[in-house]
Design a protein around this nucleic acid. Structure first.
Lengths: 346, 346
DNA sequence: TGGTACTACGCAAACGTTTTCGTGTTGAAA
DNA sequence: TTTCAACACGAAAACGTTTGCGTAGTACCA
């Protein structure tokens, strides 16, 4: 087992100094052609590669991006990561991942672990618990130390940093408009409690779409789901609520859900109750993922272009790191949404 | 914007030497109580944190694990990652991610990028292209340089390293046995071409299960899917094959598919053709994911315990890194599979 | 007063690089 | 023979730590 070879070892072997070796490898004309080729041949033979850690220490930059997301077993987030990774790799950066599991403490710990020199900047999506507690000291500290942050999807407006978001309101309007245009008159909404920012915005979009089409919203058609760490329980509760809603409000002919799972759950219940989809019940979900695509019938959705979000986030961060862009100027990039029409709409 | 504070700055500020500061912070009794508390107070005030990179260079260990997987937008792999991350974080390690996108070249590049000091060891699942080319030089080089590797799921048998695999054959046997026990007599198999190792093993399990139950396998009931970078095309082709199969072999009353997507595709077609599931057509898939859980009807599957695979992989790697285990001894851990009975089986 | 023994600190090396600056050798010009 | 430039290389600092060892200063004892 031959350990990694260093400049020093090469120097000793060839009986020259470390600096000569370094210069020779970088093809400095300060070194004679003779020595240069000798060193380069030797280095190639022993498969010399400069030690990244030493370079990082010297250059005060690691060429590594820290990404902190609430969870990875989630189609949206893994898509974003693949976008980040793609762009980062193209520009010679590595990606190091931390998971907060929606927990404030884990988010703080992860940030602290990475902020001590391991990375050059963060891309992150804020944990729900953090949003609830509204404690953002770890973000402020990080930024204060001169480490740039790009927030995506779940952002904190009051923090001065670059952001990449989806136009939740407009996306929802598109979805609801589609339902109305295809003839739905009583559209139910399945959303989350208001403290989840995206839930709130999507609800607003729903309301605005109705108003623009001269339909007065009825709060009796809206279900606000209480999120639960245990998704099983959350969904079970939701099932009961949907079932009750459909029993009570017989006129419902359309459902807009703020995520795939809620939509699928609703669809399952509607089918059980004998509704024909999309003939007398249309469904659209926010967030496009595998579930929607492969559901039977396949679900019409609002796609958030997650990969693009990731790419854009990485671009913004790296541009800032490489000072291609004004350090003090923060931008908020809005990613477009697209309506993907599948089999749950007419 | 206050930059990160270093030992040197603290030393200068308090008019002592760097070593004194370092020792004081580590509470060495070599330093007077007086100085110690002074230094510690100052460090706390300025929120001093040792620079990870400097520590890595000095200690020759980064406390970071490199993970290379074929793709991240994949339920199985993201589950494994969450397992790795959990165990790694518990033991004070970070996780850095590389995606090969099933490409040999990207796999090599990723490994080379990370192997130069950035990480202490690898956890990886081999890209399909690499398996096809059978070019494993990058793995050998890495191991030769003294960097441990743990392979999971898609492993290369001939390489001497730790491995974590699923018992594909046994899992498949369980699935097929379930179908037979519930009364199926003509069970179709949807699998991949044989060069994908897991496809091959799962096919073997299917065959063995049939034989053990005195059923002679019929090759006319087996579809071997040619994988395609473009999943859309792959699935479209598959749809035609399944449709043709069901038209030709009317006696089929059970389907075993080597992954969720194949199973869902088959189910969709069967439903369209008027089969009642599970009354006159049962389906089981290998690999448990969101699709199976939320399909309508929900799909019975063989769960691979992906999180456990990740945890186990991380445990094995870290044990080796921390020399809790013999460096030269390589183990292969086999993770159990479980049959999850849902609504596509009787 | 001289010797001993702590105490409390500083120096310097080391990890692997890159880069600036200094220096010895050569050859040619004066 | 002297002078000077060009050439080819080495020494050392720097990045931020940790740690073994050396050493002032003090106190105590004989």
């Amino acid at each position: 087992m031959k350990r990694k070879v260093t400049l020093k070892q090469i120097a000793k072997e060839l009986d020259v100094s470390v600096s000569t070796v370094s210069k020779a490898l970088r093809n400095s004309k300060e070194i004679s052609l003779d020595t240069r080729s000798k060193v380069q041949a030797f280095a190639k033979l022993y498969n010399y590669r400069p030690n990244n850690i030493a370079l990082s220490l010297k250059n005060k930059r690691t060429k590594t991006i820290g990404v902190i997301i609430p969870e990875i077993v989630h189609h949206f987030f893994s898509k974003v990561i693949s976008g980040i990774e793609k762009e980062a790799n193209n520009r010679g950066y590595n990606v190091i991942i931390g998971l907060s599991n929606e927990s404030f403490d884990k988010e703080v710990i992860n940030i602290e672990m990475l902020a001590n020199g391991s990375i050059d900047g963060f891309i992150l999506s804020v944990a729900k618990e953090t949003l609830l507690l509204q404690d953002y000291h770890h973000f402020y500290e990080t930024i204060n130390q001169g480490m740039p942050i790009v927030m995506f999807d779940r952002v904190v407006n009051e923090i001065a940093c670059d952001k990449v978001v989806v136009d939740d309101k407009l996306g929802s309007k598109k979805a609801v408009a589609k339902l109305i245009d295809s003839g739905c008159e009583n559209i139910a909404l399945i959303t989350t409690k208001d403290y989840v920012n995206v839930g709130k915005l999507r609800t607003q979009g729903y309301l605005e779409a109705l108003e623009e089409h001269k339909i007065t919203p009825k709060s009796s058609l809206i279900i606000k789901v209480e999120e639960n760490k245990d998704k099983e329980i959350e969904i079970e509760t939701l099932e009961k609520e949907i079932s009750a809603l459909l029993d009570k409000e017989k006129s419902i002919d359309g459902i807009f859900a703020v995520n795939e799972l809620y939509a699928i759950t609703a669809m399952k219940i509607a089918i059980n109750k004998g509704y024909k989809i999309p003939e007398n019940m249309s469904i659209v979900a926010f967030t496009d993922g595998v579930l929607s695509k492969h559901a039977i019938p396949s679900l019409s959705t609002i796609s958030q272009h997650a990969v693009e979000m990731g790419e854009k986030s990485a671009t913004m961060l790296i541009d800032k790191l490489e000072e291609l862009v004004d350090e003090e100027k923060y931008q908020t990039e809005v990613i477009n949404t697209t309506l993907i029409e599948r089999d749950t709409t007419r």
